[in-house]
Every structure is written in C-alpha cells, then in structure tokens.
Design a protein around this nucleic acid. Sequence first.
DNA 1: GATAACCGTGCACAATGGGTGCATGATCGA
DNA 2: TCGATCATGCACCCATTGTGCACGGTTATC
Lengths: 315, 315
Amino acid sequence: MHNGCMIDPRLITLRVFARCGTVGATAELTGYSPSAVSAQLRELQRVLGMQLLTKDGRGVRLTATGRYLVAGSDTLVAEWERLRAAAMAAGDQVQSRFGLGGFSTAAAQLLAPLAATLRSTRPQLEVQVLEADPDRCFDLLVAERIDLAVIVAMQSDTYLEDDPRFEQTVLLDDPLDVIIPSDHPLASRETVTLEELASEPWITEAAGSTYHSLFTAAFTAVGVTPRIAHEAVEWETQIAFVGAGLGVGLLPRLAPLRSAENVVRLRITGKGKPARRIVAAVRKGSLASPLIQESLGILQVRANRILAARPEDDL
Amino acid sequence: MHNGCMIDPRLITLRVFARCGTVGATAELTGYSPSAVSAQLRELQRVLGMQLLTKDGRGVRLTATGRYLVAGSDTLVAEWERLRAAAMAAGDQVQSRFGLGGFSTAAAQLLAPLAATLRSTRPQLEVQVLEADPDRCFDLLVAERIDLAVIVAMQSDTYLEDDPRFEQTVLLDDPLDVIIPSDHPLASRETVTLEELASEPWITEAAGSTYHSLFTAAFTAVGVTPRIAHEAVEWETQIAFVGAGLGVGLLPRLAPLRSAENVVRLRITGKGKPARRIVAAVRKGSLASPLIQESLGILQVRANRILAARPEDDL
DNA sequence: GATAACCGTGCACAATGGGTGCATGATCGA
DNA sequence: TCGATCATGCACCCATTGTGCACGGTTATC
C-alpha cells in the first residue's frame, strides 16, 4: 500500500502509467481520478523541467526522456525499499499497513490464512487483501497498492526472471489433478496416467493462457496429443462441464472441488506430471523487510503443510 | 534549490537535521519554521512506523534507527541525482532553478561571473547565489537549497574525501601572497621568500582556522617558526593591520587588495609556496547534469584565466 | 462518411495537508 | 534563581491537490 514511500508519488504514478499506457488505467490502479493523474503528470514535467509525454492519437505516450526516467527509477525505488526494509529490521519494527494481492485460488488458500495469522500476531497492523490476476498484481505492486503478491509463475507476460522491479520466491509447485465424471470407468482409481486419458475429450482454458501452456506441455512430455473438446475460464465452469459428462479436465490441487458430487479428482502418475509453480513476488529491495520475511515464512509453512497433507502423491 | 527532488522533503529535512543536530538550525537551513520541522519529523516517524528521534536534554537526538536511515539515504539521494542528471542529459534539458553557494572571495571572483554567464546563456534559468562559509555550503547542499558550492578544500571539518553525499572537482590552487607595508624595506621587491620574512611580526587568523593551518604548514616547509603578533578574521581587517604597520600577512591571490594605499603585495618564491585549494562541490550523482557540467566548465575557464593572468609566478 | 465510443484535459470547487506565529514546557548555563 | 535556548502544541490560514463535469480530439463501426 502507498505506505511511507519516500519517492514522490507523482513519480510512482508515472511508473504505473509506463506499465499500463493510459491515463485512465493509471487512475484506476492508483486510486486517483483521471484528471488527477493528468495533473500529476503535467506537474511532474513542470517541476522536473522535462517533457515526459507526447500526444499519440487519442492517448498519450512516453517520450524517450520519459522512458529513460522510468527505467532509471527502478533502481531508485528498489533502493528505497531496501533501505526501508533494512531500517525496519534494524529498528525491529514493521510498517503499519500491509497490502497483499493474489489470484483467487492463492487468495483463498494462502493469502487468507496469512492475513488471519498476521491479524492475530500483529493486531495493530492494517492488512488488506486484493484479489487480482497476476498481471494486475504486478501493476498493484508498482503502484504501491500492495506489498506482496502470490502469483503463478510465467502467467503474466510482463513477468521476467530478472525484472529490476520485482523479486520472487518459489512457494510451492501445485500439481494438477485430473477431474473426471464419477461415472467414468476410471473413477474408482486412485491415480491415473495421462496416457490412459489420451483419447478423452478434454476441457481446458483458451489457447494462450498459462494453464493451456501447462496442459500442452504435460501432454507433449508423454508424447500424445489430446483432443480439446471445450473451453472454460473459471474452474467452477470447468468442473461443471466435467460433471455434465462433457469430458475430463485438469484441476490444480489447491483448487477445491467443493460440492461437485458427480466429479472425482485423481492424482496423475507417470512421466507427465503437470504442475503450476506458485511464487510470491515483492518489490525489489523489500525482501529484507521483517514483515515480508515473516509473511514469506508463514506462506512457506502453509505451502509445506499443503504439500505434506498429500504425501502419497510424490512417490 | 529544492527543485524537483523526487525524495520526500521530510526525509531531506531529516538529513539536514542529522547534520546540524537541532530543530532550530534545521529550520533555518531548510527555510521552514521550527514548528514545521518538528511536525515534519513527527509525521515522518508516524508514516514510516519508526522511532527516529529521542529526547536528549533540551534537544532531540537521532536514534540508532534514525542514524541508520540517514546513512542509508545517502545512496538514495545520490541515485536520484544521478538519474535526474542522466535524464536531463538524455533529454538535452536543464532544470529551471539553480542554486550556487560559496564563501566571499569565491562568490565574488568565481560565482558572480558564473551566475552572470548563465543568466545570459540561459535567460529563463533562475539562478540564485548564496554567500556562505564552506561548512554551511555543505548544509545547504544537503538541504537542496543550492546545487553547487565553491569552497576551500579541508576548510570544513565535515568535509571528507569520500563522503557519500558529495563530489568535488578541483578548480584551482589559489596561491597566497605576502602583504607588507609599503614602507617596508622589501616593498620594492617583486618576489620574496618566506625565509626573508621569518623574523617579521605576522598577522594571521586564529589558530584552528584553515588559513592558520596553511600558514603553519608553509613555514614548517621552510623550517622556520614565525612570530604571530596579531590575529584577524576578515581579510580587510588583516590588510588594515598591515597598512598600520603592525606586521605582515598572507593574502590569497583571489582576495583583492582594493584601495589599501600603504600595503603592497609580493609573490612568494622558494620552497614554501602556500596555496589554498579551491574546489567545487556538488551533491553526489549530480555531476553528470548538463547544467553542472556547463557550470564547472565556466568555472574552470574562469579559474584558468585567473591563473593565466599572472603567468610569471609559477616559475 | 456520419455517429458513437473512448481518451485526455481544462475548469470550478472543495477539502485536506502543511506552514506560520505565538505561547508553553522543559532543560542547561550563569 | 533567573535567563536563555530548544522543542512542541495549538489555532489559524493558505496553498496544494483531488473530484466531478464538460469539452475537444481521435479512432472505430456501421
């Protein structure tokens, strides 16, 4: 959250703009109104004596100077985060506000317990959780709306291993299970291999999504080409499709099956064991912050507990 | 001048406080009122969630966390200066305000011409010159009141070769001349050695000052111990003392003799050729700024011209 | 080629933040 | 003990800054 950042908020706004490209989106992300963002950027140019923006069609675009400034500000922001974190650690203190972000499954399984734990151990800490897709999580990190995000690695196209703005920590590899109708011949099995399901009609996400890539990667690993019958966006939809007998699908271990009576979940064995990697992302430099460290520890414990709850599937 | 700095002004205030130690002095340096400084520091602690200050007698003192934060902020400020300078250079632009500081002789001989040149070449640039002793110049640099200072090296006790806050450039070595009464036996000479004046009554600054150190250093170089008859602070006073026949003294080449009729200035030859080193100091990171570069160039030209105007004394 | 949707910006107005000046309390030196 | 010095709290005030709405310009759609 925009909590004690010593960098001029207008520069932060510029950084957000550099990410999303439009004033309107910047306003939505930062919580300002569009006119405020416009005024801020204008004021920033005035006070810096630089031309940072140019009109471009019906929008505005960063100039070369603007891009240079934004790129260079990465180290500045990281340096401040590092300093704050170190000072916090040195003074044995934590900030008063803490913003968390993550996609739905992570929010439910990881962020909610984390928030609850922090709430009890640090009663005077304001914890806010924002559900958002990974891409938006990075936006929110840049906008200083959140301080820690739980995302699926490589889900975001803007995600880079060595992005100068972020640092990541692997929390766990969440294996994908198979969900099949309960009246399916294999429904009574404990585990199944992808080869056994090669001829089934598959339900997956649209091509281009992260899970679709995981999907194809898993099947190419075992050398078969699945037939994609249907597409769904939400897990719930996909589960409903499977329940309706439209086909079979993949469901992350962390995603709950809930009350889907006519759907069973099977572990995958064999070569192709698809999994999604769940990582925690923070602004670069903030990794040393006591609160971040504590949160990562809690998340790690939680992740390990999740993994340990199903020890049999790793064999 | 506090001109488009992207670092929170409250942190700058804290940095100034770290230098001078009292709220009142911080207020004077930053241009705020004491209550404003007090409120800023309190607000800073609140928003950062750190205790930075402790009561200490009738004043306040930095805590360990505070000192840590201030020390770490050096790189942050330097990083911003570097970024601004680079962006300015990349965009071929300069800031709109420019603050200069220096001690009296430098202000007259170097800063005034620099300000005049900048005023003509960049009409829309606000140039402000502040006369201040070197120590205060560093304060003003930290407080972002000025951007460039011309000082005598090692005059300030806070001056460090590798201070993480400043960068320096040698402008010139200003030789010290001898001033003697015009009715002195040596008054008709062009040059003189210190040995020849060893037995004269000397007029100098009080022990502990920079010029006093230069004074003693010069005489220890030639192996004689001068007799200090009188002490003066201002050059004008010292000249008046010499004119009154009270003794002889040292006067920097840059300091004008003006209308002192009964005083003559002689160059010093031989081993002990005392000189004061005049350097330009800027905030670390700002050296790449176009305006700083241009200013340093102008100062260097001016310094070379001063040296060239008296070419005979270097032999 | 007209119309609609979208994007950014300017303007009037309001509210919050932040600074000043003065008074007060506390501590140290004479 | 008295005065000087320092920081701080408080009332007031001003300036910055954000909002809401309207407008102009540009692109897409039919």
